[in-house]
Every structure is written in C-alpha cells, then in structure tokens.
C-alpha cells in the first residue's frame, strides 16, 4: 500500500513472467545494457581512422550555426538556399544563435515562403504541383478512410478536419485573389 512503506504487489511473479514472455530479464543486469552508463569510451573509434576528419569541399557559402567554431568537416548539400526563402534562412543563421526564438521563427517563416516560391515556380515547369496526387489524399478511398475513423474512439479525428483547410485554404485564397484581380482589370479596360 502506497501510504505505507510496502511496494504494491505485482500481478505476476518473476517466474511467471519468464515463462510468459520470451527473453524476460535477459538485460536485468545493467552491464548488459549497451547504453549504460551514458558515457563510454569507444576504444575502436567505431572504425574511424582519423583524429579530425578530412574536410569536404565547400562549394557555396554553407550556412551554419554561429554556435559552431567553424564549418563542420562534413555537411549535407541538399537544396542550397535560393530566392527570398534563402535570404531569410541566411539571415536566421547569420544573426541569431539556436538559443534565440528569432532563429527558429525565421526558419519556419522561410519554410512557408519556400513552399509558395516552389509552388508558383512549378507552374512554369512541365510538372506543376498537383495537390491531389501530392497529398496522397486518394488513399482515403483505397485505404478505408471512413471505416478507419468512424466508430473508433480516435482523438485525432477532430483536428484532422483542419488538414484540408491548411492544405487547400491558401490555394483557394490565392485563386480568389487572382480572380478578383483579373475581374478588376477587365472592368477597367
């Protein structure tokens, strides 16, 4: 009982658990647990044969956290910054440490700008963005969208209705703005 010093009784003994669950207690001894203790000197350096790695060539000014002393020797080269989103990203890295909310808020803002820049420029390519295929929403039909949700006690269904608004909302808005603008132009001419 909790209000005394006794530990509440368990429904099953160690022997019962060992019989019911394959491997029960195999790692009872903390010495058998690979992440105990947290810090463990790795004598084999996990296969590395350097003290400090060779440096990967920097092909464009690579943005980096100002909390780093220098550009790390190895880094990813996916999607170099470009356009307005690229300018915001560079600013976020140059000006603000990871300790500052401004750093992350600017990066999040840049992500939204990037999405719009990319959607708009995709219309100038042979493969414009297609919200139907890219959201995979057709799997609602092939993957039982209704029966997966109805009659289940799922707590995510009530905010899932927001998803189409988040995805399609800005498009609807953009089209509405464009239509109004065209109408105004036509009226003027």
């Amino acid at each position: 009982m909790t209000y005394t010093s006794d530990k509440p009784a368990l429904p099953e003994s160690a022997d019962q658990l060992r019989a019911r669950i394959p491997g029960w207690g195999a790692d009872l001894d903390p010495k058998d647990r690979p992440s105990v203790p947290k810090l463990q000197w790795q004598e084999d350096r996990t296969g590395a044969h350097w003290d400090f790695p060779d440096r990967q060539p920097e092909k464009w000014p690579r943005e980096r956290s100002i909390e780093h002393k220098f550009l790390t020797p190895v880094f990813g080269t996916s999607c170099p910054p470009k356009g307005a989103s690229g300018m915001i990203r560079r600013l976020a890295y140059r000006k603000f440490s990871e300790g500052r909310a401004a750093h992350w808020l600017l990066l999040l803002a840049a992500d939204r700008v990037d999405a719009w820049e990319s959607h708009l420029s995709s219309f100038l390519t042979a493969r414009p963005d297609n919200p139907v295929t890219e959201t995979g929403v057709l799997s609602e039909f092939s993957r039982h969208g209704i029966s997966s949700r109805v009659g289940q006690k799922r707590s995510d269904v009530k905010h899932q209705v927001l998803d189409p608004v988040i995805v399609a909302g800005p498009w609807v808005l953009a089209v509405a703005v464009a239509v109004t603008a065209v109408r105004k132009l036509l009226r003027r001419s």
Binding site: Q40, W41, Q42, T46, R62, R64, T72, F75, Y93
Partner: peptide, 24 residues
C-alpha cells in the same frame, strides 16, 4: 556521425559535433 569528436569518442553518436553545421 564521425567516430572521433568529443561526443562520438564517448559513444554519443547521436550528438556528433562534426556532421551538422546548421545546429549544435
């Protein structure tokens, strides 16, 4: 992960200091 930074040398591979310029 690099295998030889302060963190990797002590087994904290997820916290390697030599592979992510964007964040420490």
């Amino acid at each position: 992960f690099c295998g030889t930074c302060w963190f990797c040398a002590r087994g904290l591979y997820a916290n390697c200091h030599n592979v992510n310029p964007n964040a420490t």
